[in-house]
Write a protein that binds this DNA or RNA. Structure first.
Ligand SMILES: NC(=O)c1ccc[n+]([C@@H]2O[C@H](COP(=O)([O-])OP(=O)(O)OC[C@H]3O[C@@H](n4cnc5c(N)ncnc54)[C@H](O)[C@@H]3O)[C@@H](O)[C@H]2O)c1
Ligand SMILES: NC(=O)c1ccc[n+]([C@@H]2O[C@H](COP(=O)([O-])OP(=O)(O)OC[C@H]3O[C@@H](n4cnc5c(N)ncnc54)[C@H](O)[C@@H]3O)[C@@H](O)[C@H]2O)c1
Lengths: 255, 255
DNA sequence: CCATCTTTGTGCACGCGTTCACAAAGACAT
DNA sequence: ATGTCTTTGTGAACGCGTGCACAAAGATGG
């Protein structure tokens, strides 16, 4: 082992910050767009603007991958696309199963951007016997009975859950037992999984609620004073009354 | 508690951390489930488990809202549901428009959890003239021409973008110009908006890529050594060659 | 009224992520 | 070859978020 060889491995393989990993797909998307326009090189400033981030952050992110830029010039677009793709594991094919082919599951199955980056829909799975055999997005839906076999046969390690919330944990357990180690969950539930299994969730409702919070803050900056007085009175009354017998808790304010 | 009148306002109205805001909907969901089971009180430990977070974190989060717990007992479920709802701005009705009624937009329109928490689908908007008038989820789709009028008439401040990526920025600008100040973007693009407008994005592709990264790491912990040797050779060759004349850059592996 | 026991609310320390600011690297012109 | 000019890569400072650990609060029982 030569002297300078170890440094690279140590730099790369050891802990890329999670925040950086989450931004790599963003950079990759911007770079792909540049690549399609046959742009040969790009500066950190330009790329950062395209990805919607700070240029210093972008440079630091790239520094975790290695020194792929050229000072005074910038980054070679094609080369960087390859490096990031490789780092993210997109140079290999990832078979994915979608479980729960309802409104959302069907939309996901039809989603083109799915296959565009190394992800291949290996199977669509639903518990409804009526759906078995019916093609969605050109792929026949299979019954839940087949779940374990499908995962095993296709070497699936990534699963997408789009079932109702009530079924999600159970589906999750079957997926994990069958060998899935990464789950993307669309159902509004907290999934509990053993160590070594990654779960990411996409939750529309939570996103809207966060927006509503900021929206309320924006709207009620000046009107807050008066509203606050009313609410304080209410709250004080409620506090005094304790947990009253009937519906004294205001719950959701009617229109 | 007669003395602490001022303290409360000061504590609450000033900056709730963003990370806390993002967790409030999670707590709210867990609390709502408890409420439906008529559970009167809950400890921070129990609630934290239900929400999938650390109990100390939960207590600190709640401390930003005020002192709503009772030591030795826990938190009053109904009261807390109300306080969090109010804090998030869910005690009022938020009319929402969805723009782009394709696969995803239609799924969103059909989503029940949408209306369940103060969010009301005020209108569905699409650029396709064919779709105009057709009902989706019981709501007739309206043409993009009407966008400004719809937003104005309904006092919409939250918009959801589910159009193809190419149209997203343009749609975004029209929404903002019409008065929308919060946007939930499903299109895989970086939206640029003026100050004062909040954008949150939901990006399936990014989530999958993050999962793939961790998946690759899990799989290649021991096989890394040999693969690394090969890749190092490749990289070294590529480095030496610089940006070669033809397609020496591997780019994304074709299907 | 006092003791005990449970659970909150928070001070504190630590680690991660962000941003600034600049020295070093290298392209390019002369 | 040398100087200039651009842009990277990163050291260092800072701020935010997390989690520990515990004192204070208050319920409950005697
Ligand atoms: N539709 C949306 O836009 C949207 C948005 C956010 C979240 N979600 C969530 O995504 C999930 C799916 O939403 P949807 O609108 O598609 O619901 P849906 O009712 O249309 O579809 C659910 C599907 O899951 C299937 N299913 C039920 N139990 C199953 C099981 N045990 N195994 C396999 N399949 C099972 C059903 O047969 C059905 O086809 C829900 O949890 C919903 O809350 C949906
Ligand atoms: N389907 C999914 O599961 C999924 C997942 C993640 C992201 N996305 C993204 O969400 C977006 C929509 O996906 P989809 O599968 O529903 O696509 P789609 O093609 O089925 O639907 C797009 C709809 O937008 C409408 N539209 C186009 N331009 C418009 C404009 N300027 N104004 C108003 N409406 C316009 C079209 O008429 C069409 O009805 C895409 O950007 C996609 O990348 C989709």
């Amino acid at each position: 082992m030569a002297t300078g060889r170890t440094h690279r491995t140590a730099t790369r393989s050891r802990g890329i910050p999670e925040a950086t990993v989450a931004r790599l797909p963003l950079y990759l998307r911007a770079l792909t767009a540049l690549s399609e326009r046959s742009v040969p090189t790009v500066s950190s400033e330009e790329l950062a603007a395209a990805a919607g981030v700070n240029s210093a952050k972008l440079r630091k992110d790239f520094s975790y991958l290695g020194s792929y830029g050229t000072r005074g010039v910038g980054y070679d677009v094609e080369y960087l696309v390859y490096q990031i793709s490789r780092e993210l594991g997109l140079t290999q094919d990832w078979p994915v199963v979608i479980v729960g082919i309802g409104n959302l599951g069907a939309a996901l199955a039809n989603y083109g951007g799915f296959a565009s980056r190394g992800f291949r829909v290996a199977a669509l799975i639903d518990a409804d016997p009526e759906m078995a055999g019916k093609p969605v997005a050109g792929i026949p839906v299979q019954h839940t009975d087949q779940l374990e076999k499908i995962i095993d046969d296709n070497g699936v390690s990534i699963g997408v859950i789009a079932t109702p919330a009530g079924a999600a944990q159970q589906v999750c357990e079957r997926l994990v037992a069958a060998g899935v180690t990464s789950i993307l969950n669309f159902a509004p539930t907290v999934l509990s999984v053993p160590d070594g299994v990654d779960v990411r969730k996409v939750d529309l409702s939570i996103e809207l609620q966060i927006l509503a919070f900021h929206e309320q803050r924006k709207a009620g900056e000046e009107a807050d004073a008066q509203a606050d007085a009313v609410l304080a009175a209410e709250a004080a009354a409620a506090e005094k009354a304790g947990k009253g017998p009937d519906g004294d808790v205001p719950a959701v304010m009617p229109a």
